[in-house]
């Protein structure tokens, strides 16, 4: 039995810059394994150890995703091996194409009964790949899972999660796709031993053609503009004396036409 963990080699947009004409510059934002994916790998590792399963990382991306640096970063987190679907068309792939590539990787591996995803990707942050992946595989998808246990003998997964209605416990029969809630469990940074071991772990880089996969065409972008909120005034209020600062704040709010408090 195999458990797959989907991860994305991507940079954090909060480290990128954007020009006034809407061009995003990622050159100073380095791609990495995000905290969300680290949690997913840690959850997958715990489930695989308990079930005696093999833990395989699966990823989709452009050329950077298949570099030794990217593979080592992922493998050092505790994966046994990795499969990367690589193509220029996956460089900035949308939710659907990413899910297509991951579904092809799952089918290629065979014997996968559980896919664990992170809460969201660090760059797109749509939180939608697990559900589309589940749909393409014909498997159910459960997102926001805080804790999961596997009863491999009877093919069942128990998942606990916090939703708006309360704490929910679900029991599902495999196969299934789940996503780990952010902070579901601790994912310590890999140590030197993990990094050294990662270099010896097997990995496979495949093209969509290798998988007989035809990626859906990307929709054309007709406009891209820099997002700018309303201009904010940035008026500094002296905080040397908290009581004076508080009074000044209330006066400034009233002057701005947005008073707070009982007299508003």
């Amino acid at each position: 039995m195999k458990i797959a963990v989907a991860y994305k080699w991507a940079a954090d947009p909060s480290e990128a810059s954007v020009s006034p004409d809407g061009q995003v510059d990622f050159s100073r934002a380095k791609p990495k394994i995000s905290e969300y994916d680290a949690v997913a790998i840690a959850m997958g590792r715990a489930l695989a150890d308990a079930a005696g399963a093999e833990l395989v990382g699966i990823s989709a991306g452009g050329s950077a995703a298949a570099t030794p640096l990217a593979l080592k970063a992922a493998l050092s987190r505790g994966l046994d091996s990795a499969v990367v679907v690589q193509s220029p068309d996956l460089e900035s792939a949308g939710t659907f194409q990413t899910a297509q590539a991951l579904a092809a990787a799952v089918r290629h591996l065979g014997d996968v009964t559980l896919v664990v995803c992170g809460d969201s990707s660090i760059d797109a942050g749509a939180q939608m790949v697990p559900a589309v992946l589940g749909g393409l595989l014909g498997w159910p998808a459960l997102t926001d899972v805080g804790a999961a246990q596997l009863a491999a003998a009877d093919n069942r997964l128990t998942a606990e999660r916090s939703i708006a209605e309360g704490i929910q416990t679900l029991v599902a029969t495999l196969p299934i796709v789940i996503s780990a809630a952010a902070g579901a469990l601790a994912a310590p940074a890999p140590g030197m031993k993990d990094i050294l071991a990662a270099a010896k772990k097997p990995s496979q880089v495949l093209s969509p053609a290798d998988l007989s996969l035809e990626l859906a065409a990307a929709a054309p972008v007709t406009a891209q503009v820099k997002v700018s909120g309303p201009a904010r005034r940035c008026v500094q209020i002296d905080t040397t004396d908290p009581a004076t600062a508080a009074a000044e704040l209330l006066a400034a709010l009233a002057a701005a036409g947005t008073p707070i408090g009982g007299r508003s």
């Binding site: 949308g94 797109a124 790949v129 697990p130 559900a131 589940g134 749909g135 999660r161």
Partner: peptide, 23 residues
């Protein structure tokens, strides 16, 4: 919407329609 169940079913619909997802 964006509740967990909303997302799970929206994803299945996107997969069935071969449709892009916009968040």
């Amino acid at each position: 919407g964006r509740a967990p169940a909303d997302r799970a079913i929206a994803g299945a619909i996107a997969a069935a329609m071969t449709a892009p997802v916009v968040v």
